[in-house]
Write a protein that binds this DNA or RNA. Structure first.
Length: 601
RNA sequence: GCCCACAUAGCUCAGUGGUAGAGCAUCCCCUUGGUAAGGGGAAGGUCAUGGGUUCAAAUCCCAUUGUGGGCUCCA
């Protein structure tokens, strides 16, 4: 066996990084010239596919300003100003940026030697440096291109204006951020803009409407999706598939409703950690109820109500497609990707401490199977661990134990992972699956979390082999997470052209003339008998128009029926790829379609 | 929640102070066709909601609601 070692260039060391960093400086120069003496500059880093710079300005920027700034940037590039690095003392830096409060704050952070611009701890005290290009000076670590002329003026574009809090903290002032993108060659820029365009075309909100899947209505409320028959069909198929798979993996299904007494969330710890995402309480005399934002306390209560559990019963795996309600901030709602009413394929596994590894492995296999079915083959794992401070429940021993169990399970399954501190849930560490879609965008889909805390708080117990009562460990696990969000990702992943098994309408029967309608209905009935979902296009349009309509609806099979097919008991099969499979006996088509559907290809 | 933008027919959009428009979709009529749009006609809008300015508001101003782009990928 041989492994090919590919030395990946770090983005930070790349030419593109320098180009974008330099573009940010050039943009800042242009903006400062636009507001002489009034512009305050914050930070302007390169980011994936581009760069941004944050400003505090006397007025709001407009799209026309962007054009003017971009024009000025081209002039600065034309002037070919060299970038000159200069190392300075903190005092010199303060003098240079006396009227730039954000820079002063950065300098102070650097001077303390401990903090970077976000207040995070740095390992060593950095050297303070400037980069000058022409009249513009910025506090900057670099590196940059040699001179502004190294940038290709045709490979640069300012994209949008956005608000951004200084240091990302909503307690701080709101700054104006300009996003731009810069590349080595105009063709690269074009390719990038084409990718953005492709992403827009696949936008699940646009496709959801075009394909008649789901809607939002002001009358119902923000973040509360309404699923039309076709959308609900997809949702139903997704749920059915995961349910059936879970059953196959030894999971049981439970149901715990929509509301819970607030007291339960106080005991579980959710009230303290999760209050902001709960809908306001409903008070009924002396009972205060909350819409369920998560299932764990309900599942644990159910576990308790079911009587005394023996260690022989464990693991118990309770899964539920539960409708949860989360009071997401208005500005964070986004199509189906972020909603206030969602369906979670949640599961809680009650197990013995020594079963963690096996249960984790089982969940891992289940997730890998499901993601594979949905054609997500490119994913990585992130192990989220406790941070040094914050919301985390204090119990060092249990954290250590939980973390070790997860790591050893990952290692035992030869799964590569990246550990991130400070990203854990309040009750324990978690392992998340980050999957890439066809456009290379990464989505967090599945999650497995270890919980040593809540079962104890809610009094979950089992009788051990030793005759003593013990607290079970609970693994929280979601495969597709929120069905709504997963559907959003699927729509974009497949550009609305679902695999046949998931397509709400699998076949469109297209009679060429009215005299073929009776046979078309006959075909539809036979398809129905075979469990294939179809429609007959009985409109008075020409066949070409019917094909176009079915094509735009991304229906996998178009079955054209004319005199020849009717006589032969056949259907002429056209795929949405444009491929013409010619006329086939109906039975043959049904067999072909069934195989594709059953294999979930 | 905060910053900015946007809200006109079911959908996509035009209309920037003087009687509300187009294409697609819908309905009706003609056409009955062979792999991505056949032709004609009709119907359809308190211009998101509420205030204000004006002789006059879809258009200008304010508020509200909703939607969109963002809100730590290292000076």
């Amino acid at each position: 066996m041989c492994t090919l070692e590919v030395e990946m260039e770090r983005y930070e060391d790349s030419k593109l990084y320098q180009i974008r960093h330099s573009a940010a400086h050039i943009m800042a120069q242009a903006v400062m010239e636009m507001f002489p003496g009034e512009a305050r500059i914050a930070i302007g880093p390169p980011i994936e596919n581009g760069f941004y710079y944050d400003f505090e300005l006397p007025r709001s920027l407009t799209p026309e300003d962007l054009e003017a700034i971009e024009k000025r940037m081209r002039q600065i590039i034309g002037a070919n100003q060299p970038f000159v690095r200069e190392e300075v003392s903190a005092e010199q830096a303060r003098q240079q940026f006396a009227d730039q409060p954000y820079k002063i704050e950065l300098i102070e952070g650097l001077e303390k030697g401990g903090l970077d611009e976000y207040g995070n701890l740095l390992k060593e005290k950095p050297v303070i440096s400037f980069y000058r290009d022409g009249p513009f000076v910025d506090l900057c670590r670099g590196p940059h291109v040699e001179s502004t002329g190294k940038l290709n003026p045709g490979a640069l574009k300012l994209l949008n204006i956005a608000g951004a809090y200084w240091r990302g903290d909503e307690k701080n002032k709101m700054l104006q951020r300009i996003y731009g993108t810069a590349w080595e060659k105009p063709d690269d820029l074009k390719a990038h803009l084409d990718r953005l365009e492709e992403a827009r075309k696949r936008d699940h909100r646009k496709l959801g409407k075009e394909l008649g899947l789901f809607y939002f209505s002001d009358d119902v409320g923000p973040g509360l999706p309404l699923f039309a028959p076709k959308g609900e069909m997809v949702r139903h198929l997704m749920e059915e598939y995961v349910r059936e798979t879970q059953t196959r993996y030894g999971y049981q299904h439970v149901w715990t409703g929509h509301m819970v007494k607030e007291d339960l969330y106080r005991r579980s710890g959710h009230y303290d950690n999760y209050r902001d995402v709960m809908f306001p309480p409903m008070v009924d005399e002396d009972i205060t109820l909350r819409l369920k934002p998560m299932n764990c306390p309900s599942h644990m209560t159910l576990y308790n109500e079911m009587g005394v559990h023996s260690y022989r019963e464990l693991p118990l795996r309770f899964s539920e497609f539960a409708t949860l309600y989360r009071y997401e901030k208005r500005g964070e709602l986004s199509g189906l990707a972020r909603v206030r009413a969602l369906t979670q394929d949640d599961c809680h596994i009650f197990c013995l401490p020594e079963q963690i590894e096996a249960e984790f492995t089982l969940a891992l296999k289940l997730i890998q199977e499901v993601l594979g079915t949905y054609k997500f083959t490119d994913y990585r794992m992130r192990l989220s661990l406790r941070g040094t401070e914050g919301k985390y429940v204090q119990d060092d021993e249990k954290w250590t134990q939980a973390t070790a169990a997860l790591k050893s399970a990952l290692d035992a399954n030869h799964v590569a992972y990246e550990a991130v501190e400070g990203e854990a849930a309040f009750y324990g560490p978690k392992a998340d699956f980050l999957a890439k879609d066809v456009l290379g965008r990464e989505w967090q889909l599945s999650t497995i979390q270890v919980d040593f805390i809540q079962p104890a708080r809610l009094g979950c117990e089992y009788m051990g082999e030793d005759g003593q009562t013990h607290t079970p460990v609970v693994l929280h696990r979601a495969v597709t997470g929120s069905t709504e969000r997963f559907l959003a990702v699927l729509i974009e992943h497949f550009a609305g052209a679902f695999p046949v098994w998931l397509s709400p309408v699998q076949a469109m029967v297209i009679p060429i003339a009215d005299r073929h309608v009776a046979y078309a209905r006959d075909v539809q009935q036979k398809l129905k008998d075979a469990g294939i979902r179809s429609e007959v296009d009985e409109s008075s349009e020409r066949m070409q128009a019917k094909i176009r309509h079915a094509q735009l609806q991304k229906i996998p099979y178009m079955l054209v029926i004319g005199d020849k097919e009717q006589e032969a008991g056949a259907v002429a099969v056209r795929l949405r790829t444009g491929e013409d499979l010619k006329a086939k006996p109906l039975a043959e088509f049904i067999q072909l379609a069934r195989e594709t559907i059953d294999k979930k290809e």
